[in-house]
Design a protein around this nucleic acid. Structure first.
Length: 274
DNA sequence: CGCGGTGTGAAATTGAAGTT
DNA sequence: AACTTCAATTTCACACCGCG
């Protein structure tokens, strides 16, 4: 499971064809070093990749990972219309005051997915238009649009997945955690809330969020602690108590484990009194 | 007091097999 | 496919201790 907030993109270029002009080359076969999203917006054609052949229809979105070999063929009478964006991506993490950059070899997305709604289409179109117009700050704006596009793609995936109720249940549990941040919550309690067996819900939670329940609950507690340290003039001991920790030292250790520095150090680094 | 190492019972997680 | 049950294993949350 990828932490989407840590993904960093670099757009190489965008491409589109949304008119009825003829294709110069009816078929292209290629392997490119960029990742690419390719959205079919009209016309007919065929894409072959990873040993599968897809008869193209409006609304199909392809994700080609870098170095993926694929061929795109357009129909002559009803030429293909599409939007595409080429990009590279890296996983950028900030931990213990250090930046870490790891190049990713790909997102966990299916090669092809269909879109019923037009939202993703609109975002994609805006991205491509912005890129081609090259107005001031277009690179920055395009990067934001690409992130919105990806967000839309993930949401689409969410709705498509048969087990939508699992996500709803996880969201319910997260809300409950936020509402009861000053308490100790048990797995028993949460699983009763969502009417699933404890062990099954434990599994489900990790599948949906990428974190175990305790990991997640502590993460939001530490996030809250950061805010409290910076905004309120409170002692570590008080903050620990507010977040349901009986032992302030344990809280400190946990903070350090998650953030890399102790709460006291976090305070001295980020808050400066007069 | 603060920090860090370690011990411990309890709870969470995970694997595997079974049920609807 | 979605979910349960049970047991094995791991992790958690705190406690206790010694050091400076």
């Amino acid at each position: 499971m990828v932490d989407k907030s840590k993904l960093y993109f670099h757009i190489h270029y965008c491409n589109h064809k949304e008119t009825n002009e003829d294709w110069k080359d009816k078929k292209i076969t290629r392997r490119i070093k960029h990742h690419e999203f390719f959205l079919v917006t009209g016309g007919k054609g065929c894409i072959v990749t990873e040993g599968k052949e897809y008869n193209l229809e409006k609304g199909m979105l392809f994700y080609f990972k870098k170095n993926n070999l694929h061929s795109i063929e357009s129909d002559i009478k009803d030429p293909l219309n599409f939007l595409s964006v080429h990009f590279s991506l890296a996983y950028v993490d900030f931990h213990e005051d250090q930046w870490k950059i790891v190049e990713k070899d790909g997102l966990k997305l299916p090669v092809m997915q269909r879109f019923r709604n037009y939202k993703v289409y609109h975002i994609f179109k805006k991205l491509v238009m912005m890129w081609s117009m090259k107005m001031p700050d277009y690179e920055f704006r395009c990067k934001i649009m690409l992130q919105r596009l990806l967000f839309g793609i993930y949401n689409n995936l969410k709705q498509q997945s048969t087990n939508y109720s699992a996500i709803v249940k996880v969201e319910k549990a997260i809300k409950y955690m936020n509402d009861n941040i000053g308490r100790t919550i048990t797995l028993q309690e949460l699983s009763e809330l969502v009417s699933l067996s404890p062990s099954y819900f434990s599994r489900t939670f990790r599948e949906v969020t990428g974190y175990s329940i305790i990991e997640f609950f502590n993460k939001i507690k530490i996030d809250r602690a950061e805010a409290l340290i910076m905004v309120e003039d409170k002692k570590i001991k008080e903050i620990a108590a507010m977040l349901g920790f009986k032992d302030e030292f344990y809280f400190s250790r946990l903070f350090k484990r998650i953030k890399g520095i102790s709460p006291k150090e976090f305070y001295s680094r980020n808050v400066h009194g007069y």
